[in-house]
Amino acid sequence: MARTALPGRLTWRVATLSSLHDETATARSLVFDVPGWPGHLAGQHVDVRLTAEDGYSAQRSYSLASATDGDRVELTVQKVPDGEVSPYLGDVLKPGDQVELRGPVGGWFVWRPTDTAPVLLVAGGSGIVPLMAMIRARRAASSRVPFRLIYSARTPDDVLYAAELRRLEGGLDVSYVFTRAGGQRRRIGVADVNTHGWPADFQPDCFVCGPTGFVETVADILVALGHEPRKVKTERFGPTGG
């Protein structure tokens, strides 16, 4: 925490969109330039505030998708139909446009490059975003901590960062659970977590992010497999959506 603790209260900063790219048909990554950005840890999030001309404002939390990199801040926004903020960020915002942003916030669901325990990441849908930040932070730090990622998505077309995850990376194992592929419906289960995760004896740090039901299912499985509850950190889709 010490590295990212800001002096004084958290305040809003102006962020200027510098570039954007589509990740899937419904998700887009946005890269902002935020002068004076204090840096962040993988897993932290930001609050984004939009204000209309009539003064109405709406605010949402988004996970940071990138490792800390100067004044550059990357978010990935999953467009939520009928959402108030995400359609604007996902469809309307163009390079040069500005939004208000505050952060980084959150000091619990974070991975630090100084951590040495093996890491298990379990993502449901766009819950991959803060976990991708951890993978990128590991790479940026040339860390040799072994990572395993279990990524549950509806179909292969719904996988975020697909090209980046396909590239072989030493010490990072990636496995997928597709819940709607080939006309079948399935859910992540004990066998997926047991086969593709770490044995509890290794005392890995486990990070689980996704919709509430997914997170509770996976957290229960991990505890049943013998992982200590304090080593299982969860984030339910607060920091996405809407």
Binding site: L10, Q44, H45, V46, D47, S61, R102, G103, V105, G106, G107, W108, F109, T212, T234, E235, R236, F237, G238, P239
Partner: peptide, 9 residues
């Protein structure tokens, strides 16, 4: 509900 991470900001 969401979880307490949403209280961070």
């Amino acid at each position: 509900y969401v979880d307490g991470n949403a209280l961070a900001g």
